[in-house]
Amino acid sequence: MQSKYNRLTTQQWEYMELFLPKKTRGHYKLRDIVDAILWQLRTGTQWRNLPDSFPKWQSVYYYFRKWQKDGTQERLNIELNKMERNRQGKEPTPSLLSIDSQSIKSGPFTSMSKGVDGNKKVNGRKRHVITDTLGLVWGVVVGAANEADGVVANKVVEPLLGYLDRMEKIVADHAYKTIFKRWAEENVIGLEVKISSTPPSTKGFVPLKWRWVTERTFGIFNFFRRLDKDYEKTKESQESWVLWQNCQIILNRIR
C-alpha cells in the first residue's frame, strides 16, 4: 500500500482514458480532474480545501457527481475489474463472489440514511459490498446501519445480473440464510447462495474460505481517509467513493 498519494502515471492514465468521456466542461484537463478526485479519496479533506495545484473544487465536484449519476463511475469500475482479472489469467467476469457488510460511524453532518447497528454498537451507515475471489469490488449499496443484511443483499446483486453472466455462487454468512437465499432461489436461475459462518464456540477472527477476501477489502478501506469514516451527506456519494477506491487499487498494480 502506498504511503502517500502519487499522481497518475502516463500508463495508468492511458487505461483510465479508455473508459471516461473525452470532453470536459471548461479548460481543465480530464486527467487533472481524476487526479484531484483520487487525491480527495486518499486524504479525506473537504472539497473546499483542494490545493491550488488541482482544478477548482467546484469543477472537480461537478464531475464527481456527474459520473456518479450517469453511470460513468460504475462502467469505469467494471472495465478496470475485467482488465485486472485478465492480467491475472482469469476470465473477465467471476463465477464465485462473496457478499458481506461493514458498519461505519458517520461524521457530524451526516443525517440522511443513518441508524444504529445494535450488534456492532455503531451509529451510522452500513456498506453492503460484493467482491470476487481477488477482492475486487463489483457492487456496493450503502444504507442505514440498522438495515438487515439479508434485506439489502438483493439490491447489491440485482444490478450485476445484466453483465455477470458467469455468476454461479455467492458465499455469505448466516445473516443471509433466510430472506436473501430465498430471493436468489425464486428470482435467479442457477444461482447458489452458500452460507459459511464461524462456529459459535470459536473465539477471535477465523478466516473462512473466500469470505476472508471481502474482509480484507474492508481492511483496505481504512487506508483511504475518505472511507475510514462516513463523511458524506448522501449515501450515493459513499457508494461512489468505494468504487473509486477499487479503481485506485487496480491502478496501483499497473507497472
Rank of each mutant, 00 (worst) to 15 (best):
W47K: 03
N123R: 01
W57Q: 15
I250D: 03
R125N: 02
P200S: 13
K56A: 10
A153I: 08
W210E: 12
P159Q: 15
W13G: 05
K235E: 05
L80C: 01
I254E: 02
E239H: 01
G107R: 15
C247P: 15
D70E: 09
K229P: 09
I250H: 02
K23L: 12
E236D: 08
P51E: 00
D117I: 05
N77R: 03
L20Y: 02
L136Y: 02
I189W: 11
K233V: 10
G139I: 14
Q248D: 13
I254W: 00
T133I: 09
L227C: 10
I104W: 05
N154V: 02
H174P: 01
S53D: 01
G26P: 09
V34T: 07
I130F: 11
T24V: 13
S240H: 05
Q73C: 13
L50I: 11
T214E: 11
E185F: 04
Y15Q: 09
L227G: 07
L41W: 00
V122T: 08
P199I: 13
K209M: 04
K120F: 04
L136N: 13
K155M: 05
M112A: 10
I179Q: 10
W67I: 07
G26S: 07
I170G: 03
G162I: 08
Y62E: 11
V157I: 14
W183D: 14
K181A: 06
L38T: 03
E84A: 06
A145S: 09
